[in-house]
Design a protein around this nucleic acid. Structure first.
Lengths: 220, 220
DNA sequence: GTCTATATGCGGATAGAC
DNA sequence: GTCTATCCGCATATAGAC
């Protein structure tokens, strides 16, 4: 059954890539974990790298679609006014964590894989990853800019980078922390709420003095 | 000259590990970049992994020492009162970025390597990395706890995770962004200030409702 | 679509001359 | 301390039978 094989490979690859990283996960590891033949990966995907791209797309697309849906709704009901910053942050962070909450036991490495995508260092791979985020980046940056009119565009961009950093680091390590550290037990929902509080406050931080008064003039 | 060879290897390894990641950087890459013989790595360090540990220590130790120094001074001059949150954040973020500002052209990959350390996924390697942060973690968590007495310890720990995330992601990507994105030009100093503003506001965010009222009772 | 067998290359590590 | 030559294993990928 071809479809089944393909799915099994995608699932196993997601788990192992998340856990160990892309370069150190061999196709033998993947096919063994998936219970399929070694040659199946090249037959179905063409190469190891093409498999990675497929896994990334499968993982990211629904999440990013949900993000845009939520942002669409927020903007549709705001009556032309800027959407509150915290709501934008929530629309950005909810989708990945929601899936974590729901199918935690089903797909335990989903979140970690998502976090790993943001930290991938290989130049070529990274280029293929970030193009998946082009629309997200534009839409959310624009929304943040409207909700934070006192900030210059540059400032918004850097704060979005900080936000993504706190998110991806949390996605990468939250499960290990919960699994090993008894003192820091929290439900996924609580972690998400804590992260939203942190990130929203960060986005809404007072306008930095230096950036306002020293660098003046050119706005974009 | 042995010492020189050792230094050259450490420098080249730092650059390449930062740029491409540990697993995909071969010893041949390193020795070629350093202009030394292939066998020199094993002679001086014993193995590729031991070399990585050496690079990590060389990179992290001065940074963490500076962090503790700054925190010591803050606490010594606070007269027993809690140190303001923003000052603690500053003591944590200043040292790595300061080195970036100073020797930017000298050691252009220093910051990226530092960021990569926090994102490393391999279990064994990560264990060796985080033990370098034990003291830092304890001291800064305690300081934050004193400056934010309304937060439960769990909450402080998670917020520190968010803080580290925004920091490491910024360290990993700041240079690429500055190098490629004309619209988001900023001096290292400005980026540091922006990050401090963001992180301090996040740490000082209002106590989350759910964590306060739903999870009650046990504090550690 | 699935499998076995294999081509081909690169990886870390080391033996032993200098 | 430094270098050459080499061992040996594992990686991806594919050819070709079923």
């Amino acid at each position: 059954m071809a479809t089944n094989t393909k799915e099994r490979i995608l699932g196993a690859a997601e788990q192992l890539f998340a856990d160990r990283g892309f370069p150190v996960t061999s196709m033998r590891d993947i096919t063994q974990e998936a219970g399929v033949n070694l040659a199946a990966v090249n037959y179905h995907f063409g190469s190891k790298e093409a498999l990675l791209i497929a896994v990334v797309k499968r993982t990211i697309e629904p999440v990013n679609r949900a993000r845009l849906d939520q942002l669409d709704k927020l903007e549709a009901t705001s009556g032309g006014l800027p959407v509150p910053t915290e709501h934008i942050v929530r629309a950005f962070l909810n989708p990945p964590f929601k899936k974590w909450c729901e199918c935690g036991r089903n797909d335990p490495k989903f979140l970690k894989f998502l976090g790993r995508i943001h930290a991938e260092v290989d130049q070529e791979l990274r280029a293929k990853f970030i193009e998946q985020f082009d629309t997200i980046d534009q839409r959310f940056s624009a929304a943040f800019q409207r909700s934070l009119p006192d900030l210059k565009p540059v400032e918004v961009h850097w704060r979005v980078l900080f936000l993504v950093g706190s998110m991806s680091h949390t996605m990468t390590w939250a499960e290990s922390i919960i699994a090993t550290d008894d003192q820091n037990q929290r439900d996924p929902e609580e972690i998400l709420e804590a992260l939203i509080q942190f990130a929203a406050a960060g986005m809404e931080a007072p306008v930095p003095k230096q950036a306002t008064f020293i660098t003046g003039g050119v706005v974009r």
